[in-house]
């Protein structure tokens, strides 16, 4: 067992985490250049959350991905894979040189996650699957007397799947207080802006028995603090409603029409990369 016993640390190095987030965003641009399009908007939006998880909150070891007591991060929205590949590459699970294969035939870095890629805890992409599997993992870890926690990302659109609420009911019923639902509310789904109103989101999770916080998901300090708060265990599962902006970090993309699948012209990439560098690391 190589997991540090004293992790996560009490205080976070926000500047270091912001640098990780920036670096992950740069990786995502490297990846998106290959296919010339993709879910780069969603990926940039959750970069801060994934940086705070993988480089601060999660107890995990990139060199021992199967450690039984590890904390698990489940990416239910498989099409956000671009963000997961960025985090795992940044952590050294696979080499940065592999990033440019994203979405190419025979690449391990698929456009939607399969669990054949190292570091992937479940197959995402069939939306509404994540939270139920997280419930099963949390039940299993508790039965095994493991300290492992389960963090499950899901999206605002995914709340329209009934299975999400089946899972939410059972998480509360079983008192899974080592389970954290991370709801990425970026306001878009496949057909554009959210087609079926899900507000008030936080109230829904509270009503379903979750200890719920609502924060700006692109405010790194707020994300770190909200994740730290989920270490408190009082017999209830946790939910963090994350208000994120698709394309965050690159103003040109955040200003673009809210699209599920961002299209970028071939000539734009260098300018977007320069814009991201100009924006720099952000944690204020």
């Amino acid at each position: 067992m190589t997991l540090p016993a004293n992790h996560p640390p009490e205080s976070a190095d926000l500047a270091a985490l912001a640098a990780r987030a920036l670096s992950m965003r740069q990786h995502m641009l490297t990846m998106a250049r290959g296919p010339g399009q993709g879910y780069v908007g969603q990926g940039l939006g959750v970069a801060d959350v994934l940086a705070a998880l993988y480089f601060h909150e999660l107890r995990w070891d990139p060199a021992d991905l199967a450690a039984p007591d590890r904390d698990r991060f489940l990416l239910s929205t498989g099409h956000y894979s671009i963000a997961l590949w960025a985090a795992l590459a940044e952590a050294g699970v696979f080499p940065l040189s592999e990033l440019s294969t994203y979405g190419a035939d025979d690449s391990r870095l698929d456009m939607s996650t399969l669990d054949t890629t190292p570091g992937v805890e479940m197959i995402g992409g069939s939306l509404g699957h994540g939270l139920g599997q997280a419930v099963g993992m949390a039940l299993g870890l508790r039965l095994a007397a493991s300290p492992g926690r389960v963090f499950c990302e899901l999206s605002d659109g995914e709340m329209q799947e009934g299975s999400t609420w089946e899972a939410a009911m059972s998480a509360a019923h079983f008192g899974l207080d080592r389970l954290v639902a991370l709801i990425d509310c970026n306001g878009i789904q496949a057909d554009g802006a959210i087609v079926l109103d899900m507000e008030p989101v936080a109230d829904k999770w509270r009503a379903f028995g979750f200890e719920t916080e609502e924060i700006d998901g692109n405010d790194l300090a707020a994300v770190v603090a909200a994740l730290a708060a989920t270490r408190q265990r009082a017999g209830k599962p946790h939910a963090i409603v994350l208000r994120t902006r698709p394309g965050f970090g690159i103003p040109t993309l955040t200003a673009r029409e809210k699209a599920h699948f961002i299209r970028v012209d071939a000539g734009e990439w260098d300018a977007l990369a320069a814009e991201l560098d100009r924006e720099g690391p952000r944690h204020d």
Binding site: P68, E121, M122, H129, L131, G132, Q133, A134, V135, G136, M137, A138, L139, G140, L141, L143, A144, S146, S163, E166, A167, M169, S170
Partner: peptide, 12 residues
């Protein structure tokens, strides 16, 4: 959820 949670239990 029965089947999803079963998958999660199997993964642990």
């Amino acid at each position: 959820n029965l089947v999803a949670a079963a998958a999660g239990l199997a993964r642990t």
